[in-house]
Design a protein around this nucleic acid. Structure first.
Length: 799
RNA sequence: GCGGGUAUGGCGGAAUCGGCAGACGCGCCGGAUUUAGGAUCCGGUGGGAGACCGUGCAGGUUCGACCCCUGUUACCCGCACCA
């Protein structure tokens, strides 16, 4: 037969749909497999070939597991709240609901055209009120459990999106949505206390199967450090300047203090500061800098001394000057540091520039040239003098600090609490009411979902207030506690809210009474295998692990961790080897490929193009190669013989074996290569028995389901091939009677020779000698020794 | 600066344990078929005339190294004045 994909692909997609072939089973007698792929944001641009690659990995694995008799949950949904939709809606004066519905319909159509085996009865849409009811419910639970708080602080603010962003959303000082420079702005912000879960999230990493780089990236993002808080008195006041340090052992080497420019004590004691105009000017200058400018490396240290204000070193009573400098951040530790220029390079640079003393307290290095941060004997350090072990010095200092009540051990995290509110329309309303008497009160659970109201104008206000603030009927309400007049919170949740728990909803997507039935959660959790992009490692993956752990703590989910195993696919690059982007014009549209070459070709190609986890450039000629392979496969129906050649049978068993194991380790490229080898073998031998062809198309089915279903039908197969049993292979069929091994002389390949399998060393040596193949190389030399690895090599050493 | 990773033909990439480097595909060359082109099928294809040389570079361990060790270079990704 011919590979008539234009007819057969829609035909089989329709059959699968009618038969509900991929509906999730819950048969208790079978093992379960929950395969999860990151659900897409349904943008107006439609799908990208990158989506196809991202989903095809677990698609193949899920199809294979289904054929192996598992209950498979392989769902799909849409993460549909978000700014692009809202901006599109504003620009085209269309309601975001309508835009979202159109985009979801378009994405669904595209996904179906690829032939993915998702369970379409379980689709979730984060913007559906039946879904976001539970997003709000989880938020309320967090509120009840003290994980939600409001604080007026400096936040990352995107002037272009007119929106507050979390730390995770402003990495590198750029807005994650529009790539504008982030500015620091003082604002009232809702926070989720994710830092309270930092340790639990670190611990959890030990019980999941994440690749090393993902684990390390998460650890670094959480950024746990252990150290000490030390209290310095401000001379002439009762005030304490509290600092955090990881090197309390160097306390005797402190020669100045540095506070972040925004540090509140500066305002509090401005009356004592003689050069306040200069200080204010510096602070203003820092405020203007973007986060990016401020954190630029290789930057000269700047700062101003607080003239008139001094700190007292608690261990030796020395009076030390205080500076403000933007190399100290308000957001980490206490926003102030003790500076030890002898042993910290940043402090050293600052001291050199401002002519501050440098006191060495650890022997070693040359502090004239740079700070010394190595080990050595303690000097100039009172009771620590003579100690040579850093750990011990720290322990002894901590003991002293605690004994004298001037400090204590402490832990800090780089991860910050999650700035959770957005001043935009297209998101989940935050279910909180502000009551003048009772303060912040949660919207009662029975009133959830708190529906997103209709507005005329989706645009945020110039002052950075949410569009919802303009709707009096939404804003004005009564306090659920005291019944008095109150106002609703008008900000909405960030896009990451809905995606933090969607994998739970797939398990029980239509449940009106709870987020998901606990028994079902017990059956399906954890997600067995989660595949997605590397870009989500320090965002979605962190956030959802946090939410899951919280839900575990309040007894809503049965597992500590949501995902047992995580993998990541590599990017699909443009034909020019650069990341695909509209501006470069190197984007490949999956629908164009499907129209020209078929969905099966697309599926095979995205998995064949290279190592699944690595980036690889798109190649149109290679796409054609994959199409050619499928055409050769289709033609096998015209090559049926009574029995297969022995070589074909052997190659078939080898193929079943390799495809079976390669799929499990995501080595799809070599699995496909093996199938190509097999087809080449059939062509070389001129035919194949029907049963053997059935076996072959069964293992090819997860990759090219449409073509193989068609072949199965043409060959008279019954039922759907996609639901057939995965074939077994016979190891004994693979064993050869003879093997060809390499014959080396002094480690250099000189010949190859056919030997009986598992031949003894004596026999091997004799057969090789008798063959005379290496005589020319050993002639007249002295035998030293020989090395024989059965079925591999024979190496003879001579002199 | 720190952390993680990569480096193999003209190209994408293979290579369980340290045991015949270059599977498979693309491209290219040749042949068959064809009025021709395309498509298809068959064969060839790391370099070198050769002895030989070949897995970023320089060493080391080993009978034997893409693989292990030391040093080094280039590139990619993440974080980045984190006290």
């Amino acid at each position: 037969m011919k590979h008539e994909f234009k007819q057969t692909e829609p035909k089989w997609q329709k059959r699968w749909e009618e038969a509900k072939a991929f509906r999730t089973g819950e048969d208790a007698g079978k093992p379960k497999f929950y395969g999860l792929v990151e659900f897409p944001y349904p943008s107006g641009a439609g799908m990208h070939v990158g989506h196809i690659k991202a989903y095809s990995g677990l698609e193949v694995i899920s199809r294979k597991r289904r054929m192996q008799g598992y209950n498979v949950l392989f769902p799909m949904g849409f993460d549909a709240f978000g700014l692009p939709t809202e901006n599109y809606a504003i620009k085209h004066n269309k309601h975001p609901r309508i835009v979202t519905d159109e985009n979801i319909a378009h994405f669904t159509e595209q996904l179906k055209r690829v032939g993915f085996s998702f369970d379409w009865d379980r689709v979730v849409d984060t913007t559906d009120h039946n879904y976001y009811k539970w997003t709000q419910w989880i938020f309320r639970k967090m509120f009840d459990n003290g994980l939600v708080f409001r604080d007026k602080t400096l936040v990352n603010y995107c002037p272009s999106c007119k929106c507050v962003l979390s730390n995770e959303d402003s990495q590198g000082g750029k807005c994650d949505i529009c790539h504008s420079d982030i500015v620091q702005k003082s604002k009232d912000v809702w926070y989720l206390r994710i830092t309270a879960y930092a340790d639990k999230m670190l611990e959890g990493l030990n019980e999941v199967d994440f690749p090393e780089n993902i684990r390390v990236q998460q650890e670094n993002w959480i950024g746990r450090s252990t150290g000490a808080f030390v209290n310095f008195k401000l001379s002439g006041t009762e005030e304490t300047l509290r600092i955090y340090t990881t090197r309390c052992d160097t306390l005797f080497g402190v020669t100045f203090m540095v506070m972040a420019p925004e540090h509140p004590l500066i305002d509090k004691y401005s009356a004592l500061i003689n050069n306040m105009p200069e200080v204010s000017a510096y602070r203003e200058e820092c405020g203007k800098k973007t986060e990016f400018e401020r954190t630029q490396l290789v930057k000269e240290k700047t700062g101003v001394r607080l003239d008139g204000l001094c700190a007292i070193n608690p261990v030796n009573g020395k009076e030390i000057p205080i500076y403000i400098s933007d190399y100290v951040m308000m957001g980490y530790g206490t926003g102030a540091i003790m500076a030890v220029p002898a042993h910290d390079q940043r402090d050293w640079e600052f001291a050199k520039k401002f002519g501050i003393d440098i006191i060495q307290v650890i022997k070693g290095g040359n502090i004239e040239e740079c700070a010394y941060d190595g080990d050595g004997e303690m000097i100039n350090s009172g009771f620590l003098n003579g100690c040579t072990n850093k750990k011990e010095s720290i322990a002894r200092m901590l003991e002293e600090l605690e004994k004298r009540g001037i400090g204590e051990a402490g832990v800090q995290y780089k991860m910050k609490d999650w700035a959770f509110n957005r001043q935009r329309y297209w998101g989940e309303p935050i279910p909180i009411i502000h009551c003048p008497h009772c303060g912040m009160v949660g919207v009662p659970y029975e009133e959830l979902p708190l529906l997103l109201p209709e507005v005329e104008n989706f645009e945020p206000g110039e002052g950075g207030e949410s569009p919802l603030a303009k709707i009096d009927s939404f804003v004005n309400c009564t306090c659920p506690k005291c019944g008095g007049k109150a106002k609703r919170e008008t900000d909405t949740m960030p896009q990451w809210a809905g995606s933090s728990w969607y994998y739970l909803r797939y398990i029980d997507p239509h449940n009106d009474n709870e987020l998901a039935d606990f028994e079902k959660l017990k059956y399906w959790l954890p997600v067995d295998w989660y595949n997605g992009g590397m870009e989500h490692v320090t965002r979605h993956l962190i956030y959802s692990r946090f939410w899951h752990r919280f839900l575990y703590d309040i007894g809503v989910v049965p597992t500590k961790e949501p995902y047992a195993k995580r993998t990541a696919q590599g990017l699909v690059l443009g034909p020019d080897g650069v990341k695909m982007s509209k501006s470069r014009g190197n984007v490949v549209d999956p629908l164009d490929i499907i129209d020209q070459y078929g969905a099966d070709t697309l599926r095979v190609y995205v998995l064949f193009m290279g190592d699944y986890g690595s980036a690889a450039p798109w190649s149109m000629t290679s796409v054609r190669g994959c199409k050619k392979f499928l055409e050769r496969v289709a033609s096998l129906t015209d090559m049926i013989t009574g029995t297969s050649d022995k070589k074909v049978v052997k190659s078939l068993h080898a193929t079943v074996k390799k495809v079976t194991s390669d799929i499990e380790s995501m080595k799809f490229n070599t699995a496909i290569a093996q199938m190509m080898t097999f087809v080449n073998e059939v062509y070389a031998c001129g035919g194949i028995a029907k049963d053997d062809l059935f076996t072959f198309i069964t293992v090819l089915n997860p990759f090219a389901p449409h073509l193989t279903e068609e072949m199965h039908e043409v060959l008279g197969g019954k039922g759907l091939l996609s639901l057939a049993a995965w074939p077994e292979y016979d190891e004994s069929m693979l064993a050869e009677d003879t093997v060809e091994i390499a014959v080396q002389v002094c480690g250099r390949l000189r010949a190859t020779i056919e030997l009986p399998r598992d031949c003894s060393k004596e026999d091997a040596a004799r057969i090789i000698a008798e063959s005379g193949k290496i005589a020319a190389f050993t002639e007249g030399k002295t035998f030293v020794k020989d090395i024989y690895v059965p079925n591999r090599i024979y190496n003879i050493i001579i002199k």
